[in-house]
Amino acid sequence: MDFQAEALDKVIKNAIEVVESSKYQIFEILESARDELLSLKQELQFVMKETETTLNRVDQLEINYRRSRIRLTEVSRDFVRYKEEDIKQAYEKATQLQLDLMIYREKEMYLKARRDELQKRSRSVENSVARAESVGSQMGVVMEYLTGEIGQVNKIIKTAKNRQFIGLKIILAQEEERKRIAREIHDGPAQLLANLVLRTEIVERMIAKQDFNMVQAEIVDLKGQVRASLEEMRKVIFNLRPMALDDLGLIPTLRKFVHDFEERTRIRSLFETRGKEQRFSSAMEAAIYRLVQEAITNAFKHAAPTYVLVEMTFQAQMVKIVIQDNGCGFKIALIEEKRNEHFGLIGMRERVELLEGRMEISSELEQGTKIVIHIPTNVDKRKE
């Protein structure tokens, strides 16, 4: 298909204006969210300190109140040693301590509720900041491509060899963004959750000394929830960017993914390789990993299989990937008829085409599904 440079240049300029305008709007949203997050964190820090002070005050009042009750009982029984004035003073002191204790307990409940609310709002705003940063970064990538020389854009569009290179650059940009988000989550929310576990352990020991069984049980449950959240966060970090992909390579990472999938779902899973294993570029390995991950996830969500096979065959200038399951299967014709309901497979096919590969799907109802992907592996030579 022929492209006229002037028309294409006009389209790109309009797109650049829209992207530039959207970029500034996203920047304003991001700055507003950062200011709100800073305010929330400052208020949360104050509430945390106030809560700790109140807890200490409640503990002391509990001790003083118990002592005053003992004192009241003592003076009330011994009319020889103590006068009516002593009894009155003991009673008033016990009453005042009881009132103070009730007030501080109410304050403690309010502070805890406010703390939980602030933590929830902080997490929500942090997610908004992360999303805004991600969109802003993606806008930057789009701007980089759109502001390129129009003649070069025409050459890239017309040249099939360069098309794969464009696809790999896009994938590489996405993977770099995943790395950044993974680092931010690890250094931010994950560290905060770890700190919360430590604080709950301290509070647990403090309250345990006073034998508040119900409160202690509640704190123990809270600690378990926080630890579970921390574990989930670590899983998110791994899914964003498996570190083994950079350190060990594609095959060990896929083997671990399939093994973990079997452990998590109890679905029998097998990973096999054929031919001489090769290392590819970081972008290529990331693309293949995401394709296998998407295929297995789709099978788990929609096919209810009891067996999944992943097979990779290394050839001279091609890698063949087979993902097969014995699930419920589907009619191939329905994919094109209902594209919106099968965006997972459609998205996989588009990503394979970006890599100049091809994807074949064979499936029948109650006979499972087989996906075969062929991807050329000489992209690095073309890049040079």
Rank of each mutant, 00 (worst) to 15 (best):
G167Y: 00
G167Q: 02
G167A: 12
G167M: 01
L168D: 04
L168A: 03
K169D: 04
K169G: 00
K169V: 04
K169A: 04
K169N: 09
I170F: 06
I170E: 08
I170N: 04
I170S: 07
I170P: 00
I170C: 01
I171R: 09
I171E: 06
I171K: 09
I171C: 03
L172M: 09
L172V: 02
L172D: 15
L172E: 15
A173Y: 12
A173I: 03
A173V: 03
A173W: 09
A173M: 07
Q174F: 14
Q174C: 09
Q174M: 14
Q174I: 05
E175R: 08
E175N: 11
E175Y: 07
E175C: 01
E176R: 11
E176H: 11
E176Q: 13
E176L: 14
E176D: 14
E176Y: 10
E176T: 08
E176C: 06
E177D: 14
E177L: 12
E177H: 07
E177G: 11
E177F: 04
E177Y: 01
E177W: 03
R178A: 15
R178G: 02
R178Y: 11
R178W: 06
R178V: 08
R178N: 15
K179N: 05
K179Q: 08
K179E: 07
K179S: 04
K179P: 00
R180E: 15
R180Y: 09
R180Q: 14
R180C: 02
R180N: 14
R180F: 07
R180P: 00
R180W: 07
I181T: 10
I181S: 03
A182Y: 00
A182K: 00
A182R: 01
R183I: 00
E184S: 12
E184H: 08
I185D: 00
I185Y: 02
I185T: 09
I185N: 00
H186S: 15
H186Q: 14
H186A: 15
D187R: 13
D187G: 07
D187M: 11
D187W: 10
D187F: 14
D187Q: 13
G188M: 09
G188S: 12
G188E: 14
G188R: 07
G188F: 10
G188V: 06
P189A: 10
P189K: 05
P189H: 02
A190V: 15
A190L: 14
A190T: 15
A190C: 10
A190K: 09
Q191G: 05
Q191W: 02
Q191V: 08
Q191N: 11
Q191L: 11
Q191E: 15
L192A: 13
L192Q: 12
L192T: 12
L192N: 13
L193E: 11
L193M: 12
L193A: 13
L193N: 06
A194K: 10
A194H: 08
A194E: 14
A194W: 00
A194R: 11
A194C: 08
A194Q: 12
N195Y: 06
N195V: 04
L196F: 05
L196Y: 02
L196K: 06
L196I: 12
L196W: 00
L196R: 07
L196Q: 10
V197W: 01
V197Y: 02
V197K: 05
V197N: 07
V197A: 11
V197D: 10
V197E: 14
L198W: 04
L198P: 01
L198F: 07
L198V: 09
L198G: 15
R199T: 05
R199P: 00
R199C: 03
R199Q: 10
